[in-house]
Design a protein around this nucleic acid. Structure first.
Length: 290
DNA sequence: AGCAGCGTCCGGCCGC
DNA sequence: TGCGGCCGGACGCTG
């Protein structure tokens, strides 16, 4: 389940492997083709496959960056800039290989959906088991308005004030804190894993109403979220279920998690509890978190 | 106008 | 071993 730290890891590896290369060929799986024929929008969004393939052909990759949980491929063709936005959804993964045989894990190999062959013979391979990911080719970021509505990057100076201001609005003040910190319009890139960890560290019950947390505690919570995200980036991300980096390797953050997926509280030994908040499973310690 | 609730994209995995 | 149901980021649509 890729969240911000996992996406950051992918971008750090994709950038040096693809910068300056030109896409010479684009291949799309039969599964995507038949999905499109049925009028669905699996993975390739907002464009016909014909346009997607035609437009991407001969584009040069200028840079690869991250914005929240999105990967931005900055592209150029005939002097015009373009932007390919990639979201990994639940199970998306990029691999950089010279041959598809290098994608060794069967579940990734069996679900390869898009292949960009580059002018140096290398291939950018997108695999997605559940097909919740997306690839959206734009002229620029402004062409897809949801990208403009994302919260600032959590590591940016303005992120904490944005969080505090949004958390105080009537709409969000009455919601459970976990729902608020997992909302990408409030904080960018904090998904279930890191929200669970941060709330456990802060000893805050995930269902506590946001307005029942003091300004001081909300500031501390924000800083804990940022620290957990940074710790995970440094550990190469959490390899929970389907996340792999582009070499097919797993990160080690999952061994450092204290609450996500746990049956027993690592602090007091109590059995953890689980409840649904905004439709997502939320694990917590009923004794430590109030 | 803005928001809550639901549909959409799916296969892996779990429990019976 | 077979199979139905559950799970989930984040947007779009509807009422």
């Amino acid at each position: 389940m890729p969240e911000l730290p996992e996406v950051e890891g992918v971008v750090r590896e994709l950038a040096p492997a693809s910068k300056g290369r030109t896409i010479s060929e684009v291949k799309v799986s039969e599964v995507i083709r038949s999905s499109k024929e049925l009028g669905k929008e699996a993975i390739v969004k907002g464009k016909t496959l014909e346009d997607f393939i035609e437009e991407l052909s001969d584009m040069t990759i200028i840079d690869v960056t991250r914005r929240s949980k999105y990967i931005y491929f900055h592209l150029e063709k005939a002097g015009q800039p373009h932007l390919l936005v990639s979201h990994l959804g639940m199970s998306g993964a990029w691999f950089v290989v010279n041959s598809l045989d290098e994608v060794v894990e069967r579940k990734f190999k069996n679900h390869i959906h898009v292949i960009f062959t580059m002018d140096d013979g290398g291939m950018l391979v997108y695999s997605d088991i559940r097909r919740f990911g997306e690839l959206r080719l734009l002229g620029k970021e402004e062409d897809y308005s949801p990208l403009l509505k994302m919260a600032p990057e959590p590591f940016s100076r303005e992120a904490i004030d944005h969080f505090l201001a949004m958390a105080s609005t009537p709409k969000y003040a009455r919601k459970p804190i976990k729902e608020v910190i997992m909302d990408g319009h409030i904080i960018s890139g904090c998904g279930n894993i890191y929200a669970t960890e941060a709330l456990f560290k802060m000893k805050i019950h995930p269902n506590r109403t946001t307005e029942r947390i003091s300004e001081k505690r909300k500031r501390e919570l924000f800083n804990v979220i940022v620290n957990v995200l940074q710790e995970s980036i440094d550990a190469g991300g959490s390899s929970i279920s389907d996340y792999r980096n582009i070499n097919g390797e797993a990160g080690t953050m999952q061994t450092r998690l204290k609450m996500y997926g746990k049956k027993v509280c690592s602090h007091c030994g109590s059995s953890t509890k689980s409840m649904k908040i905004a439709g997502r499973t939320s694990v917590y310690c009923p004794k430590c978190q109030r």
